[in-house]
């Protein structure tokens, strides 16, 4: 495999160069998540409220966008949409590639977000809605004030994963020639042949952003779920109380009969 000799100086040299395209990456992520939330709500509602026909369409939509690789979706929309629009005499040949990328990621994220919303709403105990009705709230008040806030809190970890996954997926936009971070890395390599240095820098940047996002979401989650604190620590599980488990394992090692231990 070709490439120039490894030179640590390039690690530092390329860092700011890659970072200069970070805004493109973050723009794709934030726009996609924003539109994805809109799409996700629209797609989730027919299934939550069991609206005939629309509900089927939602299911097919979600199944398709979750059932095919995002890379294929990217190509499908990039090559397919202009041709479809040509049929209705809309010319998009001059539309920036970035639009197609954001569109694909929005539709993709929308499918996952609709599933997230559905799971979140279903996870809220029915008694919560009944209690809201019993104090006289109407359907809208019940949904927005009681069910949705709880559903969102439940969904937050899933949402965090989705945002981070979208960030990582933006690395695929380079296949269409978008100058986000991975695309920039591609050009740097064409110029200097310093593959490894470039990709290490790229990895570090993606990692730092993912890590920061994860921390941020965890803080948010702790805030949103402050009402659950006691319940969450109460769950005694196989590994969460490792000391006692290890105690059990150690104890039984010497005494074949074993006992329930401490």
């Amino acid at each position: 495999m070709p490439g120039a000799k490894f030179d640590i100086a390039y690690l530092f040299d390329y860092f700011p160069k890659l970072l200069s395209t970070l805004n493109v990456t973050l723009t794709i992520v934030s726009l996609s998540i924003l539109f994805g939330l809109g799409v996700g709500f629209l797609v989730a509602l027919p299934r939550l409220y069991k609206i005939p026909v629309l509900r089927r369409l939602s299911e097919v939509y979600v199944s398709f966008f979750r059932g095919t690789p995002i890379l294929i979706q990217l190509f499908l929309i990039y090559y397919g949409l202009p041709e479809m629009l040509k049929l209705v005499h809309i010319d998009v040949t001059r539309t920036p590639v970035l639009v197609f990328v954001v569109l694909t990621y929005s539709l993709h994220a929308g499918a996952f977000i609709s599933e997230m919303i559905r799971a979140g709403v279903t996870a809220v105990d029915r008694g919560q809605a009944e209690a809201a009705y019993s104090v006289g709230m109407n359907g809208y008040q019940t949904f927005t004030r009681i069910v949705l806030p709880q559903a969102l809190a439940i969904s937050l970890p899933v949402f965090a994963n989705l945002v981070i996954a979208t960030l990582k997926d933006t690395s695929l936009a380079f296949t269409l020639g978008v100058m986000e971070m991975t695309g920039k890395a591609d050009t740097l390599i064409t110029l200097g042949q310093h593959y490894i240095e470039t990709y290490i820098d790229l990895a570090i940047i993606y990692f730092v952003i993912s890590f920061a996002l994860e921390r941020l979401f965890r803080l948010l989650e702790r805030r949103l779920l402050r009402h659950e604190r006691r319940e969450r620590t109460a769950g005694k599980r196989f590994g969460r109380n490792v000391p006692s488990l290890r105690g059990l394992l150690a104890e039984s090692a010497g005494v074949p009969k074993g006992g329930a231990g401490g």
Binding site: G127, Q128, E130, A131, Y133, S134, V135, Q150, E228
Partner: peptide, 17 residues
């Protein structure tokens, strides 16, 4: 519903409040 109120078997307190 506005003329009545209910006390539930499983309390059904709003968990996030």
């Amino acid at each position: 519903r506005r003329k009545t109120a209910m006390v539930f078997q499983h309390y059904n307190l709003f968990k996030h409040k």
